[in-house]
C-alpha cells in the first residue's frame, strides 16, 4: 500500500471540497482519478502532497502518516508532475531535471556527481537526452511533460502524482506520454493521475476513482465501473460504450452518434 487515504475531508473556508474520500493506490498500478472540472481532483492531490495541511482524515504514504513527514521526507516518497507550464526563467532541460535531486543533497550544497548521473539516467529513460541543453521553454509541450516526468524520476520517489499529464498535448504526444507512464507503472512505480478522458482509462489505468461533488462516486477497475450510468452521473451527458479489439479497449460514443 504506497498511498492510503481514509475519510479525507477538506474545506476552503466554509466550502467543503472533499468529503470522506477513501482509497488506496499500490505499486505497479495506475490509478486514474476521473471527474469533471472543479470536483476536487487538484485539492485531493494537494492534500496527498502535503501542501494543504488543514484536512481531516488520514493520509498514509508507505505506512507513515504524512503529518509526521517533513517536506524533504515527503519528496523522497512522492514526486509531483504538475500540468505543463513555462517556468519564470528559461532553464535548460537538464537543469530542470536535476532540480528533482534536490532532496538528496544537504541544504548547503548543490547536486554532485551522483545526482548528475541520476538525472542523466532519467532523461535517457524518457528519451529526451538529445534535448538536455535546450531551453525548457523552447521545446514542445509533450517534451516538457516528459522532462517533468524525468525530473520526478530523478527525485527517486516511487509514487508519482500527475495532474492531467496529457492536457493540452496533441494526439501523438498524448500517446507518447501515456505509454511512458504505463511503462513506469510496470517498473514498479505507484502512479496516481487525474484525467478528463474516460476513454484513456481503459487502456492506461488499472483502477479508476470517480469523484462527484467531492465524494467518491465509484472506485474499481475501469471495465467494471466506467459505463454510461457513471458518465451520465459525472458529466451529465449520454453516451454508449462501444467495445473494440476484442474488448481490449472501450470507447465512449455520444448517444446521438451511436443510434443505429
Amino acid at each position: 500500500m504506497s498511498i492510503q487515504v481514509e475519510n479525507l475531508s477538506f474545506s476552503y473556508d466554509k466550502h467543503e471540497v472533499l468529503k470522506n474520500v477513501s482509497f488506496s493506490a499500490t505499486e505497479n498500478r495506475i490509478l486514474s482519478v476521473l471527474g469533471p472540472n472543479g470536483v476536487g481532483k487538484s485539492t485531493l492531490f494537494s492534500c496527498i502532497l502535503g501542501l494543504l495541511p488543514d484536512y481531516s482524515g488520514k493520509i498514509e504514504v508507505d505506512g507513515e502518516d504524512i503529518r509526521n513527514l517533513s517536506a524533504r521526507e515527503m519528496a523522497r516518497r512522492i514526486a509531483y508532475i504538475p500540468q505543463s507550464h513555462y517556468p519564470s526563467f528559461n532553464y535548460t532541460v537538464f537543469d530542470m531535471v536535476l532540480m528533482g535531486t534536490t532532496q538528496q543533497v544537504s541544504v548547503f550544497s548543490t547536486p554532485g556527481k551522483k545526482q548528475i548521473e541520476r538525472a542523466e539516467r532519467a532523461v535517457e529513460r524518457m528519451g529526451i537526452a538529445h534535448l538536455s541543453h535546450r531551453g525548457f521553454s523552447m521545446i514542445s509541450g509533450g517534451e516538457r511533460q516528459l522532462a517533468i516526468i524525468a525530473r520526478a524520476l530523478a527525485q527517486d520517489a516511487h509514487t508519482l502524482i500527475m495532474d492531467e499529464p496529457t492536457a493540452n498535448l496533441d494526439f501523438g504526444n498524448q500517446i507518447k506520454v501515456l505509454t511512458q507512464i504505463k511503462s513506469l507503472a510496470s517498473d514498479g512505480y505507484t502512479i496516481i493521475q487525474s484525467t478528463h478522458n474516460p476513454d484513456q482509462t481503459f487502456l492506461f489505468s488499472d483502477l479508476v476513482l470517480a469523484l462527484k461533488d467531492g465524494r467518491v462516486f465509484a472506485c474499481g477497475k475501469p471495465a467494471d465501473i466506467v459505463n454510461r450510468e457513471l458518465i451520465h452521473a459525472l458529466y451529465g451527458v449520454d453516451i454508449e460504450l462501444q467495445s473494440i479489439c476484442n474488448d481490449a479497449v472501450r470507447v465512449c460514443v455520444p448517444s446521438f452518434a451511436a443510434q443505429p
Partner: peptide
Amino acid sequence: NILTLGDDEARTIGV
C-alpha cells in the same frame, strides 16, 4: 533555483 518553480512545485521537490 527551486524557489523559481513556485511554492507548490518547490515543496514537492522537498524544499
